[in-house]
Design a protein around this nucleic acid. Sequence first.
DNA 1: CTCACAAGCGTTTTT
DNA 2: CGCTTGTGAG
Length: 769
Amino acid sequence: MNYLEELNEAQRNAVENTDGPSLVIAGAGSGKTRVLTYRIAHLLKQGARPGSILSLTFTNKAAREMKERIASIVGQQTARYLWMGTFHSIFARILRTESEVLGYPSNFTIYDTADSKSLLKAIIKEFKLDDKTYKPNVVSSRISAAKNSLITPAAYAQNAQVREYDMSIRMPRIAEIYKEYARRCFLAGAMDFDDLLLKTNILFRDHKDILKKYQERFDYVLVDEYQDTNFAQYLIVKNLAATHKNLCVVGDDAQSIYSFRGARIENILNFQKDYPEHQVYKLEQNYRSTQTIVNAANSIIQKNKRQLPKTVYSENDQGNKIKVFSALTDNEEGYLVANEISETRMRQHYKYADYAILYRTNAQSRIFEEALRKRNIPYKIYGGLSFYQRKEIKDLLSYFRLVINPKDNEALKRIINYPARGIGATTLSKLEQAALDNGVSIFEIIEQSGTNNHAALNKGLLSKVQQFVALILQFQEKAVLNDAYEMASEIATQTNIIKDLYKDQTPEGLSRFENIQELLNGIQEFSINAREEGQPNLLANYMEDVALLTDQDSEKEEDMDKVTLMTVHSSKGLEFKNVFIVGVEENLFPSSQFGNITPEAFEEERRLFYVALTRAEENAYLSFAKQRYRWGKLDFCNPSRFITEVDEQYLDMPDEADFNFDELPTEGQAIQKQSFGKTGTVGRRPTTTDQPGMKQKLVQLRQAKQRSQNFDGDDPRDIQTGMMVEHQRFGKGKVLQVEGSFPNLKATVFFQNAGQKQLLLKFAKLKIV
DNA sequence: CTCACAAGCGTTTTT
DNA sequence: CGCTTGTGAG
């Protein structure tokens, strides 16, 4: 039992008391993962069957890491039978087993956000609604929110509250759209992300025998990051744990930052009421950070009203104060950060991997990429476009999807004319209409078109679409025999996708080609692994959870010693010796431009700040710029009010007090009650330029920008064909051609690293080397 | 139907 | 700026 000796008292209690409902409140850096893994290992050592333990996480990465750690204690053979994974992957698995009673095929497709938006767009168009009023993004988030709160289309139509809200945003027909969307998903044999949870709940609600089976199967249920569960997840957990009551939830209310996707902090706040016979374990000692960082983070979070009482403390060194960088421009901010990294790395012998730059939105990464590149500092970026979202990958995956589930209309629409087969938009919409009229899938319409030409296609088109169907049918036959890799590469070649991409010798084309190769390699790996483990290795098996994979699931060797750039959200659960929290401006922390900030949202911004700070082990930095470019427009910014909320004694403010914090609006000014009656809704912040003193500064700032602009690139008129030039982001390259007349000079440049680019010189600043 | 160019719009955060 | 969508000629 030596692993128990590695734990402090609170941790050991949480590990050893395995029966009944338990709430583990795990402060930042308090060894949460250790408790969770040891608790499961402990259960196994006590004789629990691995198949009777269900443990739910939010990311694949967390699940995988935990599984590895448990395997290293109890052995691979035991660990592999644990039910461990994300909510979505576990319940997708259960839904595939039980799909029949819901009327779904077991090989149902999982629509990703792009698929469901494309379907919504089509529906909005069919309803003859204006897509400027009915923005697919907004409709999609309304439907998603409904699903997360377990509101079915029928319930939605009856629910006065949501209907009233829909009226207020002038979208009264969302209920109908929702209903149609659900119907079409069902017809296509598809579920979206939210359906995986909604349908699980429906399954458990309507089929008590099935619920009972799983209730009895899972003697122990563990949930990680419980503060991030939404209502659908909450109810699933509650149902599954109802028989044995051995539910252990682990989380930290101070790190609840996902309300935008339906997470309810109430779930953890109310746990003790929900389970009166519960035990509470508080993990309060932080092993990660210096005292300064822990105390500073506490000083922000303590201003929040809704939270569970706890005192997180550190017994590590006191450490350095949190350094605040106040930059004049966004470029200067990047420079300051890059500079600090170079300097401290040399002085303190840090590795690059000891540094992280955290920002609010992915779009903010650019400035720092540029600054790091200039100094030759290696970096890696998380987020942005995922591998599985790339066009070429989605195209090939769509072929796989259609082969496995021919009713998958979204997949069909994507590839019926890729590579080009002469089947254009008009033909496709005829087919779609015919499918709708007959209540079948597009594929079925084409399949029957020999005997029954519903879409009234002419001879030429008829033969084209039938060729397409024959191709897919031929794959379908083979797909039940061949392994995933054979099948995938056959599809990739026979459809001419490989040829098509190979033809394209531009750098972008090459990278697309490589991506396809990488995907095929991944599938090969899957095939081999599955065969070795005696698992089925058909293409359908590979496709089962590919929709639930994200980029962060594949860390490569080459990414070893690099500075990490990521959003605060995706940094949760990670730690770095040095953390830069950048872009800490009033309109980013919190972001005010997206309508009203409720007090709840405001508290969440504080928690976001808290999460960011507590990633740091040794040094934390805050930086902001007073002006920055967004969408090509100049913005003037105030530093975030949250900086002033940090207890001063922990801050190392810049010497030149060139920024007057007194100008910051006070809470009363900043949060004005809106007049239109909604209680608790607070107003939009006044814009920065409206604030006193800002107008005079405007001139100074503009001049500074002018200077930095001149400094950065050479005069466009000096750029000539044949010159070697340097671009901020693309690096060095050769000018192939210059055309147009000043100021609208255009240059074609071939960059060594980024390939050929067309640049508008007044925007893309080039330096002559 | 396909390609090339023009216009317009956007940026939380993610399974 | 950079990406997606719309429009018009071939």
